[in-house]
Nucleic acid binder design. Structure first.
Lengths: 344, 344
DNA sequence: TTGAAAGCGCTAACAT
DNA sequence: ATGTTAGCGCTTTCAA
């Protein structure tokens, strides 16, 4: 007995039926007698029959697979989004094929090709940060494969031309600062990173606008550029404590730098949140491990993945021209007030 | 002009060649003239030709795809392993299809079916913790699909019957305790979790054996069962500080509980590491954020993923019966000594 | 209710 | 160096 996997043809021969009947029986088609279905299903079970998706996909012109392309699957953010994507895709009956660009435009392009070759029915992408040429995405469009960007969207297309799911960083930052003001802070400092990254640019802008909207002056002395690492946060905070008039609030553009600031504050006998209220951004896991626990902004990572898949699904169902209309979706972030900024 | 994707047949017609020549030209086959290759490649480029992997896979009987089944893609461990898997698979020219069991045996079974249907060439699995029936894996074997377990391996098969990649938890724990003893600790406490989980069982055993090997008594009073959360660590540590003779060392079976312990120690004015040296397990990201920074054991997550793929690759290349011989691989953990246990 | 036939797009053995 | 042919396993008209 050969070890080859059983095929529909095998079942057909064994039962003295035609392949088409077998196929119909297995997909529970209406016009196959219950008796036949029974016989087919039983034999299929016995022979451990596995429908070959490659063949079915080829025939149908549908692979039942979605492609995901992320810069990497490390850190806090991307794994969570991928989790959301995989979960929602499974719910909708899609397989998920995952690629990493490693922040390399060249690999990104190759992976896009790979996904198209694999006949994925749609592609979810978060751009590598070295991508400046978007021709590979034009091809996706030409091939009429629905495309959804998440988190890192094409610069030129942002917010209009393309389907995408993003977090409203500006809004998140604005909320943070409004919250700090409400807690009584009047001199609110800000850690920010490289402003060519939109996350930092938008958070920075939200910071400024919130201050202005609440009638507080913008003191450039209180805005510190750093690399947003823990060390960066430490250095930045050391600068701030040297000021003649120290800040009484801090909004850091990420959590890591906020932790650094927290540590320096303690060293300098500044009580958090009484002397200085601190809020980070991203709601990393460790924010509930610090003392005091760090307030932060939740990025709704899982929701982002889920939403992206749902958007893709909508495009797929929207008829033969499955590209449009482009829909930029913006998720509302959620401020999580913890001990580090709750003055009560 | 129809918007259908260009196929080899299309290229053949346009160039007045046969499909086989096109196919050969595209795969850079030796016996196609350079001139023809040029023509073919150019036209392919112009028409944005994408080879249909479904068709090629069907024809060749090879999908070029590996299946990955994990309990979930959240937390610290699994994303990193998946990262390692995806990276190594890409290097070897495989696509990666990812499924989550959500710790549910039922879903695990379904996903295994799904992967087999997708004609994956090999499967990498970490078991759901609710899996007690292994029949679906028997099927994988029957279908002659190479199977590699990582981290969570089938109980019955562990270490002998099946290909797997695991961390040597016992060894890691042993190293920790040996290190603590070397730092001068003589009353070493241990936080442990549910012992039906192998990670905790093995770490626990490593702890006991290391003590014994160094001539130290095992004091059951110093062994605290907890849920291994931060809160659990706090409660466990509160028990320990009440003892008439407090411990001077602590090995926690994970990092989270160790952080809890650290916080309680500080509250009770115990200096770390002078009064009590503390070591965790897993090398979570936040271990370098605590004060003092927490010593821990690195689980080599990425390496685990990489190794698993390499093992699978070896099985694939090992001829027609691609299952064996089963190879259990055990990775050596790496103790990372940080401030919390370095007495100098 | 079932079967016959064609074909999805590709590759590979066997010509020439 | 190129062409012919057959077929991977499945689905889906169309016919009976």
């Amino acid at each position: 007995m050969a070890n080859r996997r059983a095929s529909i043809t095998d079942l057909a021969k064994t039962l003295g039926l035609s392949p088409s009947t077998i196929s119909r029986a297995l997909s529970d088609h209406d016009d196959v007698s219950e008796a036949t279905k029974q016989r087919v299903r039983q034999l299929a079970e016995e022979l451990h029959y596995k429908p070959n998706q490659l063949a079915a996909g080829l025939r149908r012109g549908r692979s039942n697979t979605l492609g995901v392309l992320v810069p990497h699957i490390t850190g806090h953010f991307f794994p969570q989004v991928v989790h959301g994507i995989a979960t929602e895709a499974a719910k909708l009956g899609f397989n998920v094929m995952i690629c990493q660009s490693n922040e390399d435009a060249r690999q990104e392009q190759k992976n896009i090709d790979l996904l198209m070759n694999s006949q994925v029915e749609g592609i979810l992408v978060s751009l590598s940060n070295s991508t400046h040429n978007y021709s590979h995405f034009e091809e996706v469009r030409q091939q009429n494969i629905p495309l959804v960007f998440f988190d890192r969207v094409m610069e030129d297309f942002r917010g209009s031309n393309v389907s995408s799911v993003m977090l409203d960083d500006y809004q998140g930052a604005y909320q943070v600062v409004a919250h700090l003001i409400e807690q009584g802070c009047t001199r609110i400092a800000h850690f920010t990173g490289p402003l060519h990254l939109n996350i930092h640019k938008n958070r920075h802008q939200g910071y400024r606008d919130a201050l202005t909207a609440h009638g507080l002056p913008i003191d450039e002395e209180l805005i510190v550029f750093c690399d947003m690492s823990q060390k960066g946060g430490i250095q930045a905070m050391r600068q701030l404590v040297k000021l003649p008039k120290r800040p009484d609030g801090l909004f850091s553009s990420n959590d890591l730098a906020a932790v650094g600031a927290l540590q320096v504050a303690k060293t300098h006998r500044m009580r958090v949140p009484q002397d200085i209220a601190i809020v980070g951004f991203s709601n990393e896991m460790f924010t509930s491990l610090t003392e005091p626990m760090l307030s932060s902004v939740d990025q709704r990572c899982e929701q982002m993945g889920k939403t992206a898949v749902q958007l893709l699904q909508k495009m797929l169902k929207s008829g033969p021209n499955r590209q449009g209309p482009p829909r930029p979706i913006v998720l509302k972030p959620k401020l999580l007030v913890r001990e580090s900024s709750q003055r009560r």
